[in-house]
Computed example of a mutant assay.
Amino acid sequence: MPKKQTETNAATQPDFETAMAELEGLVQRMEGGELSLEDSLKEFERGVKLTRLCQEALKVAEQRVKLLSADGQESDFAPQGDA
Rank of each mutant, 00 (worst) to 15 (best):
Q28S: 15
Q55L: 11
A57F: 01
A19H: 05
D39A: 06
P14W: 07
E7G: 01
L68C: 07
Q55G: 09
G81L: 05
A19G: 10
G25R: 06
S75K: 15
A10H: 00
Q28R: 15
E38T: 09
L41Y: 03
L26F: 09
A70R: 15
Q63E: 15
A21W: 09
V48L: 13
E45F: 02
N9W: 10
R29I: 07
P2R: 00
K42N: 05
S69W: 03
C54E: 13
Q13D: 02
L50H: 08
E7S: 03
N9L: 13
K42Q: 08
K59M: 10
L50P: 02
L58C: 14
F77Q: 13
Q13I: 00
G81R: 06
G47F: 07
T8Y: 00
S40V: 01
A78S: 14
C54I: 15
L53W: 12
F16K: 13
V27F: 02
V48P: 02
S69P: 01
E62K: 11
A61V: 14
E31Y: 01
A10G: 00
A61R: 12
T6A: 04
E17Y: 10
K3P: 04
N9Y: 09
L67K: 07
A78I: 10
V27I: 15
K66Q: 09
S69M: 12
L26M: 09
V48N: 13
T8R: 01
F44R: 05
G47E: 04
L37A: 12
E22C: 03
V60F: 07
A57Y: 00
G32V: 02
A61Q: 15
E74P: 05
L50G: 05
V27Q: 15
S36H: 01
D82F: 04
S36I: 02
D15N: 13
D82I: 04
L37R: 10
E34H: 12
R52S: 15
L67E: 07
L68Q: 12
L67Y: 06
E31T: 00
F77I: 12
E56M: 07
R46L: 12
A57V: 01
E31C: 01
L35E: 02
T6L: 07
E24T: 09
L35H: 02
A78C: 09
F77V: 12
L41K: 05
G25K: 08
T8C: 00
D71A: 01
E34Y: 10
F16D: 11
M30C: 10
N9H: 05
Q55A: 08
N9Q: 12
L35T: 01
E22P: 02
P79F: 10
R64L: 11
F44D: 02
Q28K: 15
E45K: 13
D76P: 07
G81I: 08
E24M: 06
D71M: 00
